[in-house]
Amino acid sequence: MEITYTQNEISEVAEQILTASASNIFLLYGEMGVGKTTLIKEIVRQLGVLELSGSPSFSIVNEYEAKDGVVYHFDFYRITNIEEAYDIGVEDYFYSGNFIFIEWPEKIIELLPESANSIYIIKNNNGSRTLKLMPVK
């Protein structure tokens, strides 16, 4: 699925992603400032999360209470080696059955579950974004 959208259309994009996804794990790829965190915030809002915080850049993971369980939001931008991911028990999170959103997944590529959706976002010259969702096959 490929979608070009503006900030005003992010609610519809989030809904389409949730509808098209076969997995509850999402890997988000894109440059700094492309809107990964903004998209995640909207998706988790649609999952029933009422209290949101920013990107977990400093804490690595944020945990949100949703109406049907827990949602985890990882940001691996600041990790310097794979051991940091092991130290927080990242694999336990991946197999918890909860919704998981991962920014900068390329930093832990060898740990990523195969059963994850990949989302690639690029910023276009006119300020819109183009998103490619590659769901699990």
Rank of each mutant, 00 (worst) to 15 (best):
E84M: 08
I43P: 10
R78H: 12
N117S: 10
V71M: 01
Y5P: 01
K67I: 15
I79R: 01
W104D: 06
N81K: 14
I79E: 02
Y86E: 12
A14L: 06
S23E: 10
A22R: 14
N124C: 12
G127R: 05
N117I: 08
Y120P: 01
G127H: 12
V90K: 03
L52F: 12
R129G: 11
I3G: 05
I108R: 03
T19W: 04
E51R: 13
N24L: 06
L131R: 08
L52E: 14
E114Q: 13
E84S: 11
N24Q: 13
A14I: 11
I82L: 14
N125S: 14
F101M: 10
E12P: 01
L133Q: 08
A22W: 02
G30K: 04
E15T: 15
M134C: 05
G97F: 11
E63S: 14
K107V: 08
V71Q: 02
M1A: 12
Y95S: 10
P113E: 03
Y120G: 00
P135R: 01
L47D: 05
T38C: 06
P56Q: 08
G30Q: 09
I88S: 01
I17G: 07
E65H: 09
Y93M: 03
F101D: 03
V71D: 06
E51K: 15
S59E: 08
E42D: 10
F74G: 11
D75H: 05
F58T: 12
E110I: 09
E103P: 02
Y5F: 15
Q7E: 14
E63F: 02
E103K: 07
L18K: 11
N124S: 02
A85G: 03
E63K: 13
Y72I: 08
I88K: 02
T19K: 14
I10H: 07
I119L: 12
N117T: 13
I119A: 04
G33Q: 10
S23D: 12
V49P: 05
N62C: 12
I25L: 10
A116K: 00
V70F: 09
F99K: 08
P135N: 09
V13Y: 00
L18A: 10
F101Q: 02
K107Y: 06
L28A: 03
I88C: 00
F74W: 05
F99Y: 15
I121W: 04
K123C: 09
N62H: 15
L131G: 03
P56R: 02
Y86R: 08
D92H: 05
I25D: 03
S96D: 03
S96L: 07
F58G: 03
A66S: 15
A14W: 12
Y5R: 04
N81W: 00
S55H: 00
D87I: 04
L52M: 14
G48A: 09
Y64T: 07
I79L: 10
N124R: 11
G30Y: 03
E106N: 09
A22E: 13
T6C: 03
T37W: 01
F94R: 05
I88G: 04
G48H: 03
S96C: 09
Y95I: 13
K67M: 12
A116P: 08
I10Q: 07
N125A: 15
N24V: 08
F26V: 04
F101V: 04
S59H: 00
N62E: 14
L47G: 11
E110W: 00
V13F: 01
Y77W: 09
S115A: 14
K107E: 10
Y72W: 08
L131T: 07
M134V: 15
